[in-house]
Design a protein around this nucleic acid. Structure first.
Length: 786
DNA sequence: CCACTGTCACTTTTT
DNA sequence: GTGACAGTGG
């Protein structure tokens, strides 16, 4: 069953080991088998094994597989989960020993909570939220925390702007006062605990006799340190990964950590798994050709074990409507003619926003489907509202959640009332928490109307009641739902579709609580339930459904495999994403290339890639340009003749670029998309594929009126000129912006004067005194100055 | 002072 | 399709 390398990995016993495995080489299998091997021979106690997986689902699957081999009794003692889940478990027990003011009931703030919190922090420092965007500061804060740099370790000179340090400090302090953590803190505080509490450190180090880490290429500095510290006593650290599949650098993952493993652990044993058992030879050949373009990697090739298989298909369509229709028809055809179950198909797109058109088309053709990711169930408004009650009951210090429920359902406590409560709380008792404030008559008596006072008193009384009485989580939710008046308010919702939808969501939440209770040791434990929800991702929910087409992002498909894979919109700006093209360095494009590599290697039997000549975006229709990745895989795809010439040209240019950077100037810059601006001095030649599409559009228009939007129907399209998108509604600024070209100087009301560095519709990179900004050309309030 | 309505800008990837 | 914001009516 196991090949020699796999066997070697499974039976590795002591000391550090690095398993480098290409896609489909049986990484997860090796991991599971090794745990089984260790347990089966009684080499280690199950409670002393730590397995870090990338998703909760992966952990659950591994447990299930192990349970079949070894029985549930043993398996449930293993520590298996994501970094976040494991750190949470440690922190719930140990955080109080750090004496930072956190209790074991700490709340976990999701990205939306974080943003609110950050916004409040910025305002509390009297900074203008327009100059200091919460999202941007959160990025900075997250980068620091994931680079192991607490507020104490950085100084003002590390920032572009001294206020950013203040914000960082204040933000952390506010979280602490709320007994709350964001995702980064969960890891960060665990690391801090291990460093500062020798007791806890020794206990945990002694405990984990064997540590196994999956998807090691996606670990970041803090995660690396965590593993290093936890494994320090026994040094049995077994990591598995593939540099070419590192796709989470936006979450500060650093694939150099895996490249460096042998330096950090000189005695590490290196095992390579290069035989691929998943995909056909043709799929692997394309994947190899693609990934070889990346510079920073271990050279390796996937070796096919399954024969060549069928050719990879590349399909060009006129526009996205025809693209989605082609995909769905193709799925139907394969299902009908070859009896391939719908569950064998996956449509893997770059961004969540792309899913809608495929969904609509699948509905139209009556094909069952299942979307993974996107909007999480727990992000729905009514769910967050009800959960906020639970959060407050669990952790009264959580003022963010408390604020959320003060006037939900409506109690006549508006913004002014909340503000008054807050100021009064900090004023009256020198730092009363909001929770204390609403329980204090002296504070509540200051509310203007007696109606508001009564409402608040009722709420405070209810919260105390719910807190006192232990009851199963599902029962608690029901009581909150009824007694708070939420249910009554929901019944008043006039839009019946919305109303029913929301009521169903509440029922689903109660159902989820019941499911939790079925497994939980303590049915009344809010902490356990809320934690499960906070760390839950939609990917974790993917069931082995054989009867529905799977739709998800490429990120969501990591670790999965499907017999039939469709990758739509292989276009510059989508895949690779615009943001990565705009990036100065090559690193972002290399990451996109790895992402494409992941997408391609998900396919077991057949792979389809589709290209739409025109695509609608918010403002109009844009001509597409073929993704460079298709050109890079060109020799392994069935391409029409004209495109083959493009592949050769592309390869020639790339070689030139590599050999002689000077010569590049004479060549058309492939990283630039065709410009949309009318006044651009020289016309940008259209990509041949796009030109052909343009001709097709014209021919079609000569016949019947197509369903294309007006802008695409403009009759004569001069060669080499891109059709103008529809003029946006806000005319004046847009008109000025539409005429802008690279090099123009512009004025922005808050950012001042700047110069345009790059235009990739609809975005432009503009250098201002404060730094380079990427703005939406059509909507940004910029004006050309001469 | 609260609640409702219309307007506008924004949309990578996720534990 | 969402969420933040401003303006208006009760």
């Amino acid at each position: 069953m196991l090949n020699p390398s796999q066997k070697q990995a499974v039976e590795h016993l002591h000391g550090p080991a690095l398993v480098l495995a290409g896609a489909g080489a049986g990484k997860t299998r090796v991991l599971t088998q090794r745990v089984a091997y260790l347990l089966d021979r009684n080499l280690v106690d199950p409670s002393r094994i730590l397995v870090v997986t990338f998703t909760n689902k992966a952990a659950r699957e591994m447990r299930e597989r192990l349970a079949k081999l070894l029985g549930w009794e043993q398996v449930k003692q293993i520590w298996a989960g994501t970094f976040h889940a494991i750190c949470c478990r440690i922190l719930r027990q140990e955080i109080e020993s750090l004496n930072l003011g956190y209790t074991g009931q700490f709340a976990i703030y999701d990205p939306k909570d974080q943003e609110k919190m950050m916004d409040l922090t910025i305002r509390s420092l009297n900074l203008d939220p327009k100059d200091y965007q919460a999202s941007k500061l959160l990025q900075i804060v997250s980068r620091l925390k994931n680079s192991d740099l607490p507020p104490e370790a950085v100084s003002a000179s590390d920032f572009e702007d001294a206020f950013q340090l203040k914000v960082y400090r204040q933000y952390q302090e506010t979280l602490r006062l709320n007994n709350a953590m964001d995702f980064d803190d969960i890891l960060f505080l665990t690391l801090r605990l291990l460093r500062e509490q020798p007791d806890a450190r020794h206990r945990l180090q002694q405990r984990f006799a064997q540590i196994l880490v999956d998807e090691y290429q996606d670990t970041n500095t803090v995660q690396f340190e965590l593993i290093r510290l936890l494994g320090d006593a026994h040094r049995n650290i077994f990591v598995v990964g593939d540099v070419d599949q590192s796709i989470y650098s936006f979450r500060h993952a650093n694939f150099r950590i895996i490249l460096r493993f042998q330096e950090d652990y000189p005695d590490a044993r290196l095992i390579k798994l290069e035989e691929n058992y998943r995909s056909t030879g043709r799929i692997l050949a394309a994947a190899n050709a693609l990934i070889q373009r990346n510079s920073e990697r271990f050279d390796k090739n996937l070796i096919a074990t399954r024969g060549q298989g069928q050719p990879l298909r590349f399909v060009q369509t006129l526009n996205e409507d025809e693209e989605s229709a082609w995909i769905v028809k193709q799925i139907k055809k394969l299902q009908e003619q070859e009896q391939i179950p719908f569950g064998s198909f996956a449509i893997l797109y770059r961004t969540n926003a792309q899913s809608r058109i495929y969904e609509q088309r699948l509905i139209q053709y009556g094909v069952p489907y299942h979307v993974v990711g996107g909007f999480r169930f727990y992000d729905r408004r009514e769910i967050k509202d009800l959960l906020s009650y639970l959060y407050v009951l669990q952790n009264p210090l959580d003022s963010l959640s408390l604020k959320r429920i003060l006037n939900v359902p409506k109690r006549g406590l508006g913004a002014k009332a909340v503000e008054m409560l807050e100021t009064s709380a900090s004023f009256e008792g020198r730092g009363l928490t909001l929770w204390d404030a609403i329980q204090t008559e002296r504070v509540t008596a200051q509310l203007p109307s007696s109606k508001a006072q009564e409402a608040l008193q009722t709420l405070a009384w209810q919260l105390r009641q719910w807190r006192q009485e232990p009851m199963p989580v599902s029962e608690l939710i029901e009581r909150v739902y009824h007694e708070s008046g939420y249910r009554a308010e929901l019944e008043q919702e006039p839009d019946s579709k919305k109303r029913v939808d929301r009521q169903e969501n509440v029922t689903a939440l109660i159902q989820a609580a019941l499911e939790y209770e079925a497994e939980a040791e303590d049915k009344t434990s809010l902490t356990g339930f809320l934690e499960k929800i906070a760390l839950f991702s939609d990917t974790d929910n993917l069931k082995e459904q054989n009867q529905a087409v799977n739709l998800m992002t490429v990120h969501g498909a990591k670790g999965l495999e499907f017999p039939m894979v469709f990758i739509p919109a292989v276009e510059e700006g989508i895949f690779p994403h615009v943001r990565s093209i705009l990036e100065e360095s090559n690193g972002a494009i290399e990451e996109e290339r790895r992402l494409m590599y992941v997408a391609v290697t998900r396919a077991q039997d057949r792979l389809f890639m589709t290209f739409a000549g025109q695509r609608r975006n918010r403002r109009g229709v844009v001509n597409s340009r073929l993704s460079r990745f298709v050109l890079e895989m060109g020799e392994h795809l069935e391409l029409p003749g004209e495109l083959l010439a493009d592949v050769q040209r592309y390869n020639y240019e790339q070689r030139l670029k590599k050999m002689n950077l000077k010569g590049v100037k004479d060549l058309p810059d492939l990283t630039d998309l065709p410009g949309e601006s009318r006044s651009e001095p020289e016309t940008v030649p259209l990509h041949p594929a796009t030109r052909r599409i343009a001709q097709m559009v014209q021919q079609k228009q000569a016949g019947t009126q197509s369903a294309l939007p007006a802008s695409a129907q403009r009759p004569a399209m001069p060669a080499g000129r891109v059709p103008q998108p529809d003029m946006p509604r806000s005319a004046p600024a847009a008109k000025a912006a539409a005429a802008l070209v690279v090099g123009d100087r512009v004025r922005h009301p808050s950012l001042g004067d700047g110069q345009i560095e790059k235009i990739i519709p609809p975005l432009a990179k503009i250098r201002f005194a404060s730094g380079v900004k990427t703005l939406h050309l059509q909507s940004a309030p910029i004006e050309k100055i001469s």
